[in-house]
């Protein structure tokens, strides 16, 4: 049969964002493994469609393959980003695992084919808070204005802080002027590229969630592919998931060094406070997922997660 060409759109322009490299890596893998069978053509990123509209556009068949942050799916596939809490080295367990099939099922119900969630090793390349006030405990967030993403808003609210939504382009000014006191960012994802190290005093070295990027496909398009093409895509994803930890470790290292060189202080919490912080982070996010899934599904996810340990 003829070679299939899949059109890909992503949340961030290729070559711009380290997390976006997951999309690039996946595309390279497919184009190498899939010669004569399946190829990916890159159409663009936020210039082509606003990032938060991309998931629905994928469902509508405007393009075929997507890369971005798992929590962009929050509106379309509720709980589709639950692998943010995964204790597995590969967040979704990787193609062939039970957890992977569960996640694929979640997306399939909404007209999407989940291809994979790639992230750093646990605790590497994840979400961190950076602030302009010293922090020794989660209690210090109380009453503070914190710029959040949809994923990190739960912990801020649970800690009694005020969550503020701002696009990355406004973070610099907001921090500099004190409109917000801190913000969350997956540090490995080019923190210093935005110049934030110049207006931020502290990074709290308390990793939260898995971060990373995910790949998804339009379900009809996936179903229409030959088994050979599907296998190539899954193989490409598995390779990307294997490649990602090293990539994130390298970026995190690079970023934290640059941040410190710029005079930022990296705060480490006491063991006890780190434990408390982690509990609030994890519990508040679980509490959110409990509003989405029924008790049975929650039990199923927890069992699949526990299988990792």
């Amino acid at each position: 049969s003829a070679q299939e060409t899949l059109r890909m759109v992503g949340a961030w322009a290729l070559g711009f964002s380290p997390t976006g490299e997951i999309g690039q890596n996946f595309m390279d893998n497919v184009n190498r493994l899939g010669e004569g069978v399946v190829q990916i053509e890159y159409l663009g990123a936020d210039d082509v469609l606003p990032p938060f509209d991309q998931p629905e556009a994928l469902v509508n068949g405007v393009f075929d393959v997507w890369y971005g942050a798992p929590n962009y799916w929050a509106g379309v596939v509720p709980g589709g980003d639950i692998t943010e809490l995964s204790p597995h080295p590969v967040p979704d367990g990787g193609p062939g695992s039970e957890l992977y099939d569960f996640i694929v099922g979640l997306y399939e119900a909404r007209g999407v084919r989940h291809i994979g969630h790639a992230a750093g090793d646990i605790g590497v390349g994840v979400h961190y808070f950076s602030t302009n006030f010293p922090v020794t405990s989660i209690d210090d967030l109380e009453g503070r204005q914190m710029r959040v993403t949809p994923l990190t808003r739960h912990i801020v609210q649970a800690a009694g802080g005020e969550s503020v939504t701002l696009p990355p382009s406004e973070v610099y000014l907001a921090m500099d002027r004190g409109t917000v006191d801190g913000f969350s960012w997956p540090v490995a994802d080019g923190f210093t590229r935005y110049g934030w190290q110049d207006v931020t005093d502290y990074m709290i070295d308390q990793p939260m969630y898995r971060s990373g990027g995910s790949i998804a496909m339009n379900l009809d398009r996936w179903n229409g592919l030959s088994e050979e093409a599907q296998d190539i895509l899954l193989q490409a994803m598995a390779e990307t998931q294997e490649w990602t930890p090293g990539w994130f470790a390298q970026n995190l290292e690079e970023q934290t060094t640059l941040m410190q060189e710029a005079g930022m202080e990296i705060l480490t919490l006491s063991e006890e406070e780190a434990e408390r912080w982690n509990t609030v982070a994890v519990d508040s996010l679980w509490a959110y997922y409990e509003t989405i899934f029924d008790a049975e599904q929650i039990a199923e996810v927890r069992a699949l997660f526990d299988a990792a340990e």
């Binding site: 929590n71 929050a74 509106g75 379309v76 939504t165």
Partner: peptide
Amino acid sequence: SRQVVVAAELEIPR
């Protein structure tokens, strides 16, 4: 039918 919500501060159906 897809139960799409706006994933922002308030989760309101789109």
